[in-house]
Design a binder for these strands. Structure first.
Ligand code: ZN
Ligand code: ZN
Ligand code: ZN
Ligand code: ZN
Lengths: 134, 134
DNA sequence: TAAAACCATATAGTCACTATAAGGTCAATA
DNA sequence: TATTGACCTTATAGTGACTATATGGTTTTA
């Protein structure tokens, strides 16, 4: 299987596949005589694993860490669960931050209606004066 | 006032101040004979405006747009309000995305307890098999 | 045979900074 | 007076995870 078929089968760009290879997330495949990369079913699985991790917004570093765990199948899995817990914590704290942000933005937006002049715009005024909480 | 004092008074790094100048968000100040930048109170206000916008996670492009509006004080302010509405929409859709993500992550995490071998880790298994919704 | 589709590498751009390097200026201290 | 330390200058590279572009070779199809 060549790079285009691999990429299509998992739903990424061919550039991304080469990028993952450079980053050490995908093992370098064999090459044809003309230099074309040739992939196996194991590459498909490996790339699909990366893709599922990325959909969950795990970083490439976290994915790398997971891959290292996979090479030691008889170690306890606590580190993996901890990695996921940490990631969940990050996601939750980002949600909280954005919810605070949303409140501030909505409150700022409420300080203006349309049909004013820019000079009198409540939004611009709120951004210019330092009446911001936090 | 020199760059260090300006930066401290608004709570950014001096590098960031120079960066904003290069990006056209902060007007180039006068220079002393030795080349040092000299800022006025108007620069403080301008930088504080940028900072408040950044806290609300407006992009530098959006801040630039707001600054352009400020130079035409007698235009209607609808564009400003629209800019903010769009930004709120982005923030909300990001919150929604992250909430979906959090659910998926929590469900994945629930498929494992500690004290298993990596081979049997429910988390790793969930990432390896394609049992993901969406 | 020629166009379309595919493959290769190398390099630069995205965003909003942040870090590093290498050096010039100024006031206070040993 | 010499030197330390805090400040300032510019230029360049790094961050993360791609994405875009340039340039050229190869394979498949019409
Ligand atoms: Zn994470
Ligand atoms: Zn308005
Ligand atoms: Zn925005
Ligand atoms: Zn586990």
């Amino acid at each position: 299987m060549r790079i285009g078929q691999l990429a299509r089968s998992v739903g990424v760009d061919t550039q991304t596949v080469r990028f993952y290879e450079r980053e050490g997330l995908l093992p370098p495949p064999d090459r044809q005589d003309n230099g074309y990369r040739v992939y196996t079913e194991r590459h498909v699985e490996r790339l699909a694993f990366i893709r599922r991790c990325r959909i969950l917004e795990l970083s490439l570093a976290e994915i790398h860490e997971l891959q290292r765990y996979q090479t030691a199948p008889h170690q306890p899995c606590r580190a993996i669960n901890t990695l996921l817990d940490d990631h969940i914590t990050h996601v939750r704290s980002r949600i909280t931050d954005l919810q605070v942000l949303e409140k501030q933005l909505v409150s700022l937006r409420a300080s203006c209606n349309d049909d004013r002049e820019i000079e009198a715009c409540g939004v611009l005024d709120g951004l210019s004066e330092g009446n911001m909480q936090q």
